[in-house]
Nucleic acid binder design. Structure first.
Length: 560
RNA sequence: UGGGACGUGGCCAAGUUGGUUAAGGCACGGGGUUUUGAUCCCCGCAUUCGCAGGUUCGAGUCCUGCCGUCCCAGCCA
């Protein structure tokens, strides 16, 4: 009955890749499909990768196909095993399981053999030009390139050189292996692209076995073919690479030929979405690591309390197209609220405490109330909440000079204390600065929860915490990482200049004891969704993260 | 000035082989329920599909031209 997740119930709207898959199955081109998610292990996965993960794994699952997780580890200069482990964890957390865990490095000998094939067929040659010279020979966007003087090198010579490159005879950069395609092609990617380079460096998995490493365009298509991938999904910037993807597979002795299909990558406003830039934030200490809850990484979102189901739903709701767009962060937050509203048990906490004394409540006594954990889901049960003569309410829930339509506590007014009873304002105490430091109220005993008068209508209901039972707790409040929609829009300014100085603030909140004991996550009623910080929270010193605030149509009206 | 793509309401985005009343979500506005100003529930929200022509009984869907945006000159992926 209590399905604590509306996850993945969303009707799937069609998109062009799904349509291609359907057509391929209908036509008999494929009886089943196979996709792959191919990250380079050089950083943490972010929400943009989540779109690709959900697409690849989701689509395959939808058609009873398979998906491989493949580490694209062809550049040992940038890659590390710690990233690979983090990536595996993130994919699993998102709720997906791969058919095989692969590495491009598993295919190093295959790549090598196919490269030899190309050389023997006169379709690849060892280049001796320097990188600068190659650039010069390549031509420009509008002018054709010129053939390298080494382009017609006898193939025996290329073969010999290539073999010696492999064994480490030459220093980095001395030679490179190039595919012989068309130096005049209007597509620059086809102007004899480099397919192998020398790297005398230890590879994280193959050690010192190799001194040459294949380039993406050579390795990726072959990896796909070797694994029997049917649909190779990638982002738009690879559209120009597709002819090369197809060229390689057409010119080596391999039968399989996966179809590369490109879609638009995800962009979110008020953040950056490139591993390179996120790594800068981490390396420069601008955030506290890849899993800092302000980051758009999956590790950060997990830590912050975003449910995986919310991210999956988000990926579904934004669609898959070829048009580039920027999705408002609010769309993601909406999915998070959606999920959490259904799954989060309720509790109370006061983030900015103001003391209230209940004058007619006996001193030194504690009264306990039974409260539902979820207003719409009785199966979540109840909890016990203590109240005492002194309690805390939110400073914002009292106004000495209330604005129009202010339903909360005010002089002469009445308000309901959620799950308890109705109280009436009596008077207040100010400090020397005129700041209200204490409010005195009188409770109406007939309005206790469960009593006949309890359903008496009052305009406002506010949350509260017993001053003696409340647990002082560090709560971390997060705001958008950048204070401009697109931190990269201004070409003259560095994106780090736009970091929001208020993206993190810490307060000491008074928290209902039952939640501190329970751990996990919850909704603090009228405030937002919170979770214990997996990194820093301890029994002795709990630390909470605000996952996302509740919608607040009152604040939005600007009345406060 | 080369090549590759994209352009449907404020933001995403569906739109079968051209037939029409232009899905849905988010946002927004209005109303109802409510011991969370939350949730939930109604209702409203493009005579129009970047622009201009053309073909057609009929075009967002076909043709032509134009405009705008993005990507490509790593021995990165």
């Amino acid at each position: 009955m209590s399905q604590h997740s509306n996850s993945d119930n969303n009707p799937k709207t069609s998109h062009f890749i799904r349509n291609i898959v359907i057509a391929d199955i209908d036509s008999g081109k494929h009886k089943s499909i196979k996709t792959r998610f191919p990250p380079e292990p050089n950083g943490f996965l972010h929400i943009g990768h989540a779109k690709a993960i959900c697409l690849n794994f989701g689509l395959a699952a939808e058609f009873s196909g398979l998906t491989n997780l493949r580490f694209d580890d062809t550049n040992p200069c940038k890659e590390e095993e710690v990233y690979a482990r983090a990536i595996e964890k993130d994919v699993r957390w998102l709720g997906f399981d791969w058919a095989e865990l692969c590495h491009a490095s598993d295919y190093f000998s295959d790549f090598y053999n196919f490269a030899v094939e190309l050389i023997e067929a006169g379709k690849a040659y060892v280049e001796e030009l320097s990188a600068d010279e190659m650039r010069e020979y390549r031509g420009t966007l509008t002018t054709a390139g010129r053939p390298s003087p080494w382009r017609e090198r006898p193939l025996e010579e290329s073969l010999d050189l290539f073999k010696r490159m492999r064994t480490g005879e030459f220093e980095d950069g001395r030679f490179v292996l190039r595919a012989k395609i068309d130096m005049a092609s209007p597509n620059i990617k086809m102007r004899d692209p480099t397919i192998y380079r020398i790297r005398n460096i230890t590879h994280q998995r193959t050690g010192d076995e190799w001194h040459i490493y294949p380039m993406y365009d050579f390795a990726h298509c072959i990896s796909d073919a070797l694994e029997g991938i049917t649909h190779s999904l990638c982002t738009l910037e690879f559209e120009d690479h597709r002819p090369l993807y197809d060229w390689v597979l057409d010119n080596i002795s391999i039968q399989a030929h996966p179809q590369q299909i490109e879609f638009a990558r995800l962009n979110l406003d008020y953040t950056v979405m490139s591993k390179r830039r996120l790594k800068m934030l981490v390396d420069e200490g601008l955030v506290d690591g890849w899993d800092d809850p302000r980051m758009p990484t999956l590790a950060a979102m997990r830590r912050r309390g975003y449910p995986a189901a919310a991210i999956r739903n988000f990926a579904e709701v934004i669609g898959v197209t070829k048009s580039e767009s920027i999705i408002p962060l609010g769309v993601l937050e909406n999915e998070v609220r959606n999920e959490l509203n259904a799954t989060a048990p309720r509790a109370m906490a006061v983030l900015d405490p103001l003391k209230v004394v209940l004058l007619n409540f006996p001193e030194g006594e504690t009264e306990w109330f039974e409260a539902a954990r979820h207003p719409q889901d009785e199966s979540m049960g109840t909890r016990r909440i203590p109240i005492t003569r002194e309690i805390y309410i939110e400073r914002g829930d009292f106004m000495e000079q209330p604005v129009r339509k202010y339903f909360r506590l005010k002089p002469g007014g009445e308000v309901r204390l959620r799950n308890a009873f109705i109280v009436k304002f009596v008077d207040l105490i100010k400090d020397d600065n005129g700041e209200v430091i204490e409010v005195h109220c009188e409770l109406d005993p007939q309005t206790r929860s469960g009593m006949p008068e309890s359903s008496r209508r009052v305009k406002g209901t506010i949350h509260w915490v017993s001053a003696v039972h409340g647990v002082p707790t560090e709560v971390r409040l997060y705001d958008r990482l950048f204070n401009v929609e697109n931190p990269l829009a201004d070409k003259d300014r560095d994106f780090r200049e736009f970091i929001n100085p208020d993206c993190l603030s810490k307060v000491t909140a008074m928290v209902e004891p039952s939640f501190i004991e329970a751990g996990g996550f919850c909704q603090f009623e009228r405030v937002g969704y919170f979770c214990h910080d997996a990194q820093d929270s301890t029994k002795e010193k709990p630390v909470l993260n605000r996952t996302v605030s509740l919608r607040d149509s009152w604040a939005k009206r600007g009345n406060k």
